[in-house]
């Protein structure tokens, strides 16, 4: 499923956070959004599944089209958020068991069949690369897991409601290198089935795993393109400065 932003503008009070964004996210590709702190990366991500409007004070204009349908014209925000899942920077385990964490959204959307629920739980944990580690303690409280495991559990929880687009907001920023490596491998695998948009501060991470990289600065897209090309031969001076570490 592809996602397009058409002239999306976000402001908070009198200050503009995103200026007239026109971006297209292709199906089954891993997109990395990079840029200095405060450039609007997280705002962009949150505006893509309508969680930004939960924070009071933001004005959002323009369109975000999911398969040709503007999500901002859709009255059912629940439907939008189910189709475009979001994983947060901080690993968060709901105060439930590991299994119930995965099935939290699935149960809400009406699945009652025990056998089906078990299959969904196993598949999603498998996809998130967590099954082997937790298969014998599915009914244990999720808070017993490590930070890296909780982040993968968060991914499994989002995958369980079958999203078509997966948004991730710096999912590895609180994790150690080995947990980061596991998640990066997992995202590369998931990109074969899903459109992934990853906000990251880690340029090496973007270089390692993204198919497409988008460089944002002061709420504007400075440059976007194939990751390899963008890092090897950036067209814009700002991109060059950022990649070489001159701008942060």
């Amino acid at each position: 499923m592809s996602l397009q932003m058409e002239d999306l503008q976000v402001s908070f009070g009198n200050s503009k956070i995103l200026e007239s964004m026109n971006l297209s996210f292709s199906k089954n590709k891993l997109h990395a959004i990079i840029g200095p702190s405060g450039c609007g990366k997280t705002t962009l991500l949150k505006s893509l599944n309508r969680t930004l409007e939960l924070d009071k004070g933001y004005q959002i204009k323009g369109k975000v089209n999911l398969s040709g349908e503007n999500i901002y014209e859709c009255k059912d925000t629940s439907w939008v958020r189910k189709r475009i899942g979001l994983v947060f920077q901080t690993p968060i385990a709901l105060p439930l068991s590991i299994k119930e964490n995965v099935l939290f959204g699935v149960r809400y959307f009406g699945e009652r069949n025990k056998a089906k629920l078990n299959v969904i739980c196993e598949n999603c944990l498998e996809q998130a690369g967590l099954w082997e580690e937790v298969k014998d303690k599915l009914n244990h409280p999720a808070r017993e897991l490590s930070g890296g495991q909780i982040q993968r559990l968060s991914i499994a929880r989002v995958l369980a409601v079958s999203p078509e687009i997966l948004l991730l907001d710096e999912p590895c920023s609180n994790l150690d290198p080995s947990a980061t490596k596991i998640i990066e491998g997992l995202l590369k695998k998931l990109a074969k089935q899903l459109t992934i948009i990853l906000v990251t501060h880690n340029l090496f991470q973007a270089k390692r795993i993204a198919d497409i990289t988008i460089f944002l600065m002061n709420g504007q897209v400075i440059e976007e393109g194939e990751t390899e090309a963008l890092f090897a031969n950036p067209k814009e001076q700002e991109t060059r400065d950022f990649i070489s570490g001159l701008t942060w």
């Binding site: 969680t51 939008v80 947060f88 709901l94 809400y108 409601v161």
Partner: peptide, 17 residues
């Protein structure tokens, strides 16, 4: 923890649930 509300809402789950 306010994150529970945000996580739930971002999954498309209703406030009452």
């Amino acid at each position: 923890n306010k994150h529970y509300r945000i996580v739930g809402t971002s999954l498309g789950v209703s406030k009452s649930y």
